[in-house]
């Protein structure tokens, strides 16, 4: 559609809820992967032998990437630009 042209409409950008989800869940994912790599036997006993932090972390990173891509590929358009104003952004 208008994606080839110069940006004419303001995108929701950083405040797009999908980006916030991607950032928070992505942060959780990274922390969990690190914790998972350092986990000791006690944690493994709790989960019944799977490195839950590591796998949950990887899953969360995947979800975060999916949301980031979704918001990048199909940005939310805030408002059509007003005629008397130059779009910023």
């Amino acid at each position: 559609m208008s994606s080839g042209k110069r940006q004419q409409q303001q995108k929701a950008g950083a405040f797009d809820v999908r980006n916030v989800i991607a950032e928070l869940i992505g942060f959780y994912g990274v922390v969990l992967v690190v914790v998972g790599l350092l986990d000791d036997d006690e944690s493994l006993a709790k989960t019944g032998g799977i490195d839950a932090n590591l796998w949950a972390g990887i899953g969360m990173i995947a979800v975060a990437v999916a949301f980031a891509l979704w918001s990048r590929l199909r940005p939310t358009v805030v408002d059509p630009p007003r005629e008397d104003e130059q779009p910023t952004g």
């Binding site: 969990l32 944690s43 989960t47 972390g57």
Partner: peptide
Amino acid sequence: RDVLPNGLLGV
């Protein structure tokens, strides 16, 4: 308490 290791516990 019984199954989540530290990390996931925080989530």
